[in-house]
Design a protein around this nucleic acid. Structure first.
Lengths: 199, 199, 199, 199
DNA sequence: CAATAAACGAGACGGTACGTCACGTCTTACG
DNA sequence: CGTAAGACGTGACGTACCGTCTCGTTTATTG
């Protein structure tokens, strides 16, 4: 944990790292993914380009890390889903929140940028799942497991599959802008999923 | 339709257009989305850069059109799905074929390139749905409608939603490389969908 | 002579070429050789860097051409040396003028820059002799030949050697700052040379 | 001489100093002047960059010192020229040796590097004359003085000027690659000089 | 059936950003 | 405290493409 144990990395400037990640997030929000350049990030962060190239292998990795840093702040706190005992209303609450989140324009550009990188870089996709998606999915699966024990969900249901059926249609609609994202749509997906995986 | 009716475009060189679209597909297959440049397309097609800029508004539009041209060949023929009378086995056949298609490495790079463009360009997304996705979806919905009439599917089922539940999980897995794409998975999605939307 | 005969070069922008050479001369005078960068030249000339790299192989070549362009203006006019019939006074006049020229601070930096490039680049050295030094040397040798016919110089004197004995000491003093450059020194070199190569 | 007399420098690592000067000479011989970098010298010498910056004000100073260190080895021994009593044959011997030396490719790059630095840095030029050129010139002038006493050279000849007439043409030819350096040329320069400064 | 005007190939142009290299300064850990 | 190591902010390097802009040269009607 101490620097003495990891001397090779002791030299890395934490303040530069933070400045880079912050500048990256700011630029993505302001100008969108395609226009963000390493030069602009370095200039905004008050940092040499080499400092970016030294520690990140690609622009995608910087963008990814800038998200990771954000979620790391949240990570510590429990991210458990609400559990009122009624899986249907709990899921609808969560799904409606997700719909709202996707509708936020400040959310739009960064997440599209992140997806653009992930789609074209298998390594980033792996990192994405391990570091960003998994913790959230585990919280969701915990709630689903509780529903199974309550007899509201088939005990043999593959919970990963349940999450896919629940979220993938929403994600696809958002990504391809192929339909409206409404509270009704969120409810509908919950209903469908519970019918499919009900006891 | 005739040149006389559209004299402004009368001079456009069809051979250059074909050469550009062919070169685009070839380059995407060879070097992937990120490395494809307008200059490379022009050079490969034996065409001046200006000829590309004259007729397409963006690189994404060229990429999109290069796909459109491919599917246009197929369009004429009916793309009706098989109809043996058994919706479950018919859908499983189709879904397994889709899984196979997604697993083809030659298919990989072009479709990721196309998705990259669509994600970041609403206009292209609209075009994508109208010209590429809709015809295919209509064929699928025709088969689902036949299943409804045969009492194998709820009569009030929203067929667009059925397609989303059926395909979105598969699409998301492929796009994010978040899980294996197998025949079992295809079957499983059909089973889930039929349970959710069964009569 | 017409563009039709030399179509490959017809496209080169003469205005850009002039702007680059002018900017180069200005920058060398202002900041000295070591600080001149291609980027600065391009910026000052209002030109893309590629336009420089397209037409010149090295920074040295640009610097060299910026001098060549200057002397080209002068080239047309005859550059014959004075010929009063008295080789001694004529040479002293010319040598004193050379000493004065070398003492001009505006002359200092550009010529040192030019020499720096020539020393380290054989190609440039060749170009230097063919395009810049030779015409001047020929004019000087013409005057020396006239002196030979007048019986003021040995008829078998190697005129190239005469020029070297006359000018090389001066050049070396200036280049290495190894001694004062005065009118007396100029006169002295003429005296020595005439004694060495006299009849 | 002892550390006690110069305590401020007592800590300076002599082994690092030698390693730096040796590495500098090696690099100049290998890659030429333009490509030699402080970083490369430090890496080759196994030395921190700061150690170079601490003790030398510029790259030119390092290069200069790397030559100085070489000649210092030779300095101690007398560097008197041969004196057979015949100035002509003695000078021809020395000049032919100089021509041979200049023709040595191992000699080429270092001396061009040294001259490049000297041309553009008056301080280095001064150091060059005081520490490197003067001792050699004094040895040569001693031989010339002996010739004066022997009546082979004008008693009022300015010996610095004699050296310039003798060596500057050779130096200029080499520096500008403006002509062949041959034994005949060496002899010729001696003949000219003796005619110019003969009694 | 020329003339003529557009689209064409070619590629130079002013730019932006790339990823690399070296600069000279600064910080850390060691001896 | 001098040192080896090397990260840092800075800035130039030379390259790749961008999108615009001429250049002649097809090419395909239209007066």
């Amino acid at each position: 944990m101490s620097n003495a144990q990891n001397p090779a990395r002791a030299r890395r400037s934490e303040s530069s790292r933070q400045a880079i990640l912050t500048a990256t997030r700011a630029l993505i929000s302001e100008v969108g993914y395609k226009t963000v350049s390493i030069e602009a990030i370095a200039a905004r962060a008050g940092v040499g380009k080499q400092t970016i190239y030294r520690w990140w292998p690609s622009k995608g990795a910087v963008i990814f890390d800038s998200f990771l840093a954000l979620s790391a702040d949240v990570d510590g706190q429990g991210m458990a889903l609400p559990d009122t005992g009624d899986i249907e209303s709990d899921l609808k609450l969560v799904m409606r929140a997700t719909v709202t989140e996707f509708a936020d324009p400040d959310f739009e550009r960064p997440i599209r940028a992140l997806n653009t990188e992930i789609i074209n870089d298998p390594d980033l996709a792996t990192q994405f799942h391990e570091k960003l998606a998994r913790p959230v999915d585990e919280a969701k699966k915990a709630r689903l497991r509780s529903a199974q024990q309550a007899g509201q969900l088939a005990t043999d249901a593959d919970l990963d599959l349940v999450l896919e059926v629940l979220y993938a249609p929403l994600f696809q609609r958002w990504l391809h802008r192929s339909g409206p994202l409404t509270a009704e749509y969120a409810d509908c997906l919950v209903d469908i999923t519970l019918r499919a995986f009900g006891p």
